[in-house]
Amino acid sequence: MEFNFQFDWQAAIDSLPFLLKGLPYTLLISFAGLAIGFVIGIVFGLMRIGPSRWIRWPAVVYVEVFRGTPVLVQVLFIFYGLPTLLGGPIDALTAGIAAIALNAGAYISEIVRGGVQSIERGQREAGLSLGLSPPQTFRYVIWPQALRRMIPALGNQGIVSIKDTSLFSVIGVGELVRQGQVYIANTFTALEVYFMIALLYLAITLSLSLALSLLERKGLVG
């Protein structure tokens, strides 16, 4: 057996300017998708514990559908499938953001539900007994505590969704992986380029982890 390869650092560094053009797309899809997904998650997560089955039921269906199907299938459906229904094209960036939002939204719904349900019943009773209305009790007593407990799980979901955006190279969004594929097609430096792409994802996800752990630590005191 004879190994005959070498890692070409120069090639890796040379690819960086081209790869970095994909970074804004990766970040945009991730953060826009997660921001919308967070709103969806709050709405459906709270519906999930709502007072009537007519409120709970749609939330259950939404969560099961978008949690139970692959995000790749979801984005393909949105990008290639939906235009047939709508009668007009959907651009790849929008499709990517929508897929992340809907997929992360389903998971975040469950995180929100779990976070709110984890708050002891006595907290709600104390708020109500002081004369706070049920919405005030939720806003000032339950939600701040629930949100704090949700941070680790939300961070986890954020990291998963950021990595999921790499799948959207298949619909031609010029994000990190897509840029890499284009670059490799001309240079045949797959080893170096995918290594650099992995490093870039790691840089994004580590930054997020760090930011969240700071937030969590601050949250314990403040």
Binding site: Q123, G127, S129, Q145
Partner: peptide, 26 residues
Amino acid sequence: RTEVGMVFQQFNLFPHLSIRDNVTLA
């Protein structure tokens, strides 16, 4: 409820608020 105060067995203070804010919230 605004006219009736209640003290619970498990205190049920709001852990995310300072002692002062626990008292001033309502």
